[in-house]
Structures are given as C-alpha cells and as structure tokens.
Amino acid sequence: MTEPGLMLFDTASLYFRAFHGIPSSLRAPDGRPVNAVRGLLDFLARFVTDYCPTQVACCWDEAWRPAWRVALVPSYKAHRVDHDDVEQVPEELVVQVPLIRQVLGALGLPVVGAADCEADDVIGTLATRSAIPVDVVTGDRDLFQLVDDERGVRVLYCGRGVANHDRVDAAWLQTKYGIDGRGYVDYAVLRGDPSDGLPGVAGIGEKTASKLVTEFGGLDGIVVAADAGELPSTLTARLRAAMDYLGPAREVVAVDRDAAVPDVDLTLPSAPRDPDRFAALTEELNLGSSADRILKALAASS
C-alpha cells in the first residue's frame, strides 16, 4: 500500500521551464502553441510516477507580485514588469495559461491559489497544514526555507532540469550552503537575488552570508554582533548601510505559512474527473503522448 504523501507543484515555475525547454514547434492543429501545456503534463506525470503521492496540489500565483511585498521592497520583481504591473511573459506562453487551467480542470488535478498571494505562499501554507510528508516541486530556491526533516518536508529542486532534479533535505542544504531550512531566509536576504529584484547587502556573497548565519543564528544575531563591534569594521558599515533593506526584505523572502488558502480535496485522482472533456482537449490541442503519460500515471496511482 502506498504511504500517504502530499506533492505540491509550483505550477508557473514548471510551465515556464516547459515553455523554454520544449520546442515551440509543438502546436495544436489550428496552429496554437502547446509546448508549455504538453511539457507541464510530462513533468506532472514523471513526478507522480516516480514519487507516488496520494495527494497533490497545482499551486497557483493569484498575484505574481503581491502588493504587500512591493510595499515592503519596491524593487521586488520590478525589472519583470511590462506595464500596469503585468509580468513580462512571451505571448506564446500567455495564450497557453488558460489552456493549462482547462486541462488540469478536466483531469481533476486540484489547482489552489489564494488572493494576493504567490504560489510560494500557497505551498508554504499547505506544507505547514499537512500531517503527512510533503514534496515541493519547484525551480525556486526560496522554497528551501520550508525544508524540515522532522516534519518530512523536502524540495524536489528542478534548477538543473526536471530529469536531474535534486532532493533537497537538511543534509543537502548543509552540504550546499552550510545552513538549514530555518536559516535560508536570512541567508537569502543577505546574499540577495537579482532575479527577484532583491539587492542583498553590498559585498556579501554566498560564503559570507552562510558564515554569518551559521555563526550568529540569523539577522537578529548578526545585527547585535555588528553593534557590539564583533564584526570587521567594513562588514559592519555595509550592514548598517543596508538596515532599511534588511527587515522588509526578510518579510518579502519569507513565505506566508498562514495564507487564506481554501480547504480543497487534494486526493490524487486515478482517472480524469471529466474524461470526455479531457479527450476533447487532447484532440483539440494535439496533446498526444503527453496525455497518454498523465493518464498512465494517474491510473498507476490507484
């Protein structure tokens, strides 16, 4: 009998990866691009087959750049804004997002979001609520903060590709960064993340950030040490120059673990909820072998 387990998909992270990694020549009969749709289905099928979760959630960005995060750090994702706070996304991907929602809906795979929240916050909340082991599937390092061996929460990190994903647990984090999940937020704040518009502290890279968090336990301890003259003067000056950034950035990087996420039945279906609709979409969108793989994965889970 399969052991209970919850798999949380960072959906946008996966369909962006599919879009950029799978040939755009994959088209529906009417010419619409479907590489992101098909790639996402292939990814879901692979993880369901390999890890056999009993529950799943396709976590969704209801707000890709939440107003409350922007209020704290105005540069947050600012470089990715097109106009009117709309994210810069290739048009050939934009047209596929509604198709992804239709396909997931026909399959009966739960799509879960929350108002003014990113998928990260949905993932953090569902992982915190879960009474069973959790696997988070993402290409976003910020979710390393959720890793918790005691609670059975790990991250299946797709930074090197889905086929070469890393199983991130406490030992992996210790080997890679010298910290644990609890220290990751402060580490990330110090190091910064240009992809999210977070500048970090000037002159502090990964090694220094890791050393500081390990030695002083986090930002609070680091600031106390700086005020007490326990750090080199140059480093102290850099930290003091960044004080207006550190506190707000910590709130921005930390995922919300108590977001207003609705209670949803996350049971992994063994067959499409609406088989006729899924069959029609398969033909309409030329889903081909991708449809076969997800159906096989669902059937094998029963």
Results as ranks from 00 to 15, higher is better:
Pro232Ser: 03
Tyr157Thr: 01
Ala226Arg: 08
Glu215Arg: 11
Arg154Met: 01
Val111Tyr: 05
Asp263Glu: 15
Val95Gln: 12
Leu6Ile: 08
Arg65Ala: 12
Leu41Gln: 03
Ile179Trp: 04
Asp82Val: 01
Leu246Arg: 15
Gly183Met: 01
Lys77Phe: 11
Val255Ala: 05
Ala254His: 12
Gly221Asn: 08
Asp180Val: 09
Ile132Trp: 07
Arg17Met: 05
Pro66His: 08
Ala163Pro: 03
Ala237His: 12
Tyr177Ser: 04
Phe216Gly: 05
Leu146Arg: 08
Pro269Arg: 06
Asp276Pro: 04
Leu190Pro: 10
Ala67Gly: 12
Gly113Val: 02
Gly247Met: 12
Gly217Cys: 13
Asp140Cys: 05
Asn35Lys: 09
Val223Ala: 10
Thr214Ala: 14
Asp196Leu: 04
Thr125Tyr: 00
Val136Leu: 02
Val162Thr: 12
Gly217Phe: 11
Asp263Trp: 11
Gln55His: 14
Phe19Arg: 00
Asp61Ile: 00
Leu219Gln: 04
Glu215Asp: 15
Arg257Ile: 04
Leu6Ala: 02
Asp180Ile: 06
Thr267Ala: 14
Ala300Glu: 14
Cys52Met: 11
Gly229Cys: 12
Glu251Pro: 01
Thr282Glu: 14
Pro269Phe: 07
Asp265Glu: 10
Thr267His: 09
Ala242Phe: 05
Gly105Trp: 02
Lys207Phe: 03
Tyr184Cys: 02
Ala119Gly: 14
Ala57His: 04
Ser13His: 12
Thr11Ser: 15
Gly124Phe: 03
Gly159Asn: 04
Asp258Met: 02
Thr11Val: 06
